[in-house]
Every structure is written in C-alpha cells, then in structure tokens.
Amino acid sequence: MADEGDWQRSLLRELSEGGTSGMHLDPPERSAPEGQRSDPETVLPRRQAPQHTQPVIRGPRAPQVPVPAPESVPTVDPRLAIALGRPQHGDSMAARTGRSLRKLTTSAAQEVVEGTRLAQEIQQPVTTGRVIAVTSIRGGAGKSTVSALLARTFNHYRHDPVLALEADAALGTLPVRLGAESVRWSCTDLAQILNPSMQLTDVSGYLVPVKDGGWLLPASQGRVGAPLDVPAYRTVTLALRRYFGVTVVDCETLPGEVARTAMDTAHARVIVATMTAEGVNGTRVVLDWLAGLPHAALATTVVVLTATSPDATLDPKAAAAHLREAGAPVLLLPYDRHLAQGGPIHADKLAQATREAAMRLAAEVMQRAVKAR
C-alpha cells in the first residue's frame, strides 16, 4: 500500500481541476465516525451527480478529427415506460413493521456492529483500480441485477469514483436497472477515443451519471448491432482503471469470448446462479474451469445464488454445499418483490435482507479484489 497516498492525491487533483471541461465533482468526503453510514437499513446517495456535457480532450494525442457524437437513445421506449407501474417494496408491510419493533431490542446493536464491520471491508483502500467481473452460465440468472446492486453499494460506502461497465451487447439491462433514462456513448465508441492525456473530467463526459451516484458505461444503445469484441473491452478496462477505484463489469453469459476474457483478467469474479438444479449444476462446471486456469482465479471468485421466485423448491443449503466443494464461497440473494418487478432499482424499496446480502457480497468481493495481483 505504499503508493496509496500518491494515487489518491493524483485522483483528487484531477477532480479539483474539473472546471476546464465544464464538469465538477466534489472531492471524496472524509471517513465517517464508527457507526455512521454503516447501517444497511438505508442506502442513500452521497453526492449529486454532475450534468452530462460534451467532453474536452486535451494533449498531443487527442484526435485530430472530432469524433461525431452518437444520438442519445432512451433505455426504455417512452410508450412502454408509462406501463412500468408503481414500484413496490421488497418487504411486505408486516415485515417492515416487525423490523421496526425489533429495533427496540438488543439485536439492533448487533446489527449495527455487523454493518460497521462490513462497511469497513467495503471501504478498503486500493493502490490501483480494481475490476470485478459479474457473469452467469445462462441468461435470466440476475447478473445485471447483482451488478447494479454491487455498483450502488460500492458507490455508497466508498469515497473514490465507481464505474458500472456493461460488457453484454446482447441488449443488456444494466442501464435500465441503474435508472439511466438514456444512453449515448458505448464501450466500443469509447475504445476509439481514449488516450493517455485524458483526465477523469474528460472521460466522465462520455459516461452516464447515475442518479444515486457513480457512473455507467453501456455496451450498446439497446439496438441489435456489432457485438463488443475483446480488443475494445481490454482497451477500455485497462484505460479506465486509473480513473475509478472500483469497476463493476456486467459481462455477457459464459462461454462468450468477452466473458471469458473478463473473468480471466478481473481482480475478483462473481458468478450468479439461479436456485435451480440446472443453474447450480452449470455453475459448478464453471467453477471447475476456473480451478484449471494458470493463476488462482478460484480464490478470487464468489458465487451468488439468486431466488427468482418465492416458491423455489431447491434446498439452498444443499445447493450451496455442492458449489462450495469447488472451493468458492457461496452467498444467497433472497427473493425480493421489488427486484422481481423489473425496471429501475430503487434503494429505498429494497427488502432489508437484500440490502444486507448486497453488503455482504460487496465486502466479500472487495476482500478478494484487494489481495489480487
């Protein structure tokens, strides 16, 4: 950690010089006293996201010919957006009432202590940006939902910039889950523009500011087109690591080429599996593949079992035990009515168990990412 101070000072200097590009970010706030900002009950935004402006590229390696800006495209067709309905709470009214009563008992103090411990693990300092890849063996497992929860949790508890990067060009849902109303620049577009002379304030002009904080880089504009390729993914992730303390990558499903590259090059990995026999069995195959990679990929991998239905019949303990045999920790993301509803994720609507699971996952993944190469 010897270079930690220099890296953070350099980052703060870039943030404070944001006026030349028409954008400004508040410097990271100081660490809160013990017990503050660690209660998993409420996840609130830490700062107001800056407005999107046209970026300015400085330096001798800037493009000689301006790159035409793509048109801004809504993430959800306006004709469909009006049909989303009112978001419901992940917990029932009875569950919320019972939790309020439990706060009056001694167990509430234990929850605060545990929340503080997890927050400290999530806030671990890094000397260079950490990349966390999230994938699954098949679609519908909830990897975009898990990616969005991770990005929101890291952004809430950490004091350095956090990026959610979508590496799934198959009409991925990460922008919708993060509440982005529209997208413009894609990962492939940015790969053609990035150069070493750019500062954070330049790069952020190409990104989507997330309402609750943090940044988003989509893989596409929600249209069927050329898929994201490995060279573009490598270019973007390697370049952006210097600007963001944590990058959460929502990958395509395995065994896609970009997903395999992301899993092989990330500092930590999250594999999302549904609470079904086929989901658990396929994920075990992936874990065995990771165990055979030349470096210790399995040691930096966490499995998330998602309950996509309240009527799941598979025994979660048996499923977790089967996956743990491969050597990776397994966490459960319980069924949440708000998440199952689809659409943007509202932090204040998440079930208490979901918030706690997101904190445990973020802490578990961060522990492994910090220790990685």
Rank of each mutant, 00 (worst) to 15 (best):
E257H: 05
T105Q: 04
L150A: 04
G179Y: 08
T20L: 13
P78W: 09
L15S: 03
L194A: 10
K103D: 15
S92C: 11
T354L: 08
T42F: 12
A262F: 06
V113M: 11
D3H: 10
I271R: 01
V304H: 05
T306M: 07
R61I: 12
F244W: 05
H267I: 00
V236T: 00
K211C: 09
P66E: 11
L84M: 14
W185L: 05
D288F: 09
T20K: 08
S92M: 08
Y243A: 08
D288E: 15
A133V: 06
R37C: 11
S309R: 15
P334E: 08
A277N: 06
T116N: 13
S21N: 13
R158G: 08
T116Y: 01
N281H: 07
D168H: 07
K143V: 02
A133R: 00
T42Q: 15
R260H: 02
S147L: 08
A62T: 04
P255M: 01
A296N: 13
G292M: 15
L15T: 10
G172E: 03
P196T: 10
V162C: 07
G19Q: 15
A133Q: 00
E356N: 07
K371L: 10
T20Q: 14
A226W: 04
D6G: 09
Q123C: 10
L165I: 00
M359N: 12
L333S: 07
R86H: 14
A170W: 15
R184Q: 14
E166G: 02
R79G: 14
K349G: 14
G98S: 04
W215Y: 13
P231K: 01
V285N: 06
R96W: 07
R130W: 00
V176R: 05
T274E: 15
M93I: 12
Q192I: 00
A119T: 11
D336H: 09
P70I: 08
V302L: 01
H322A: 15
A232V: 00
T354Q: 03
V203A: 09
V67N: 06
G35D: 04
G205D: 03
G22K: 02
A191T: 03
R269H: 04
P218K: 02
I193L: 13
K211S: 15
K211P: 01
A94M: 12
A266V: 03
E121T: 10
G213W: 06
P33E: 06
G282S: 01
T105G: 13
V365R: 12
Q192W: 12
R368P: 05
A291V: 02
W185F: 11
R96C: 03
S16N: 14
D160N: 12
T116Q: 15
Y243P: 07
L207F: 07
C187P: 00
A169V: 00
T313P: 02
S31V: 03
R86N: 14
A62N: 10
A296V: 10
P316A: 05
H346G: 02
E4V: 05
D39F: 01
R260C: 04
P209Y: 06
L15V: 11
V208T: 11
S220V: 02
A351K: 03
Q367H: 05
R260P: 00
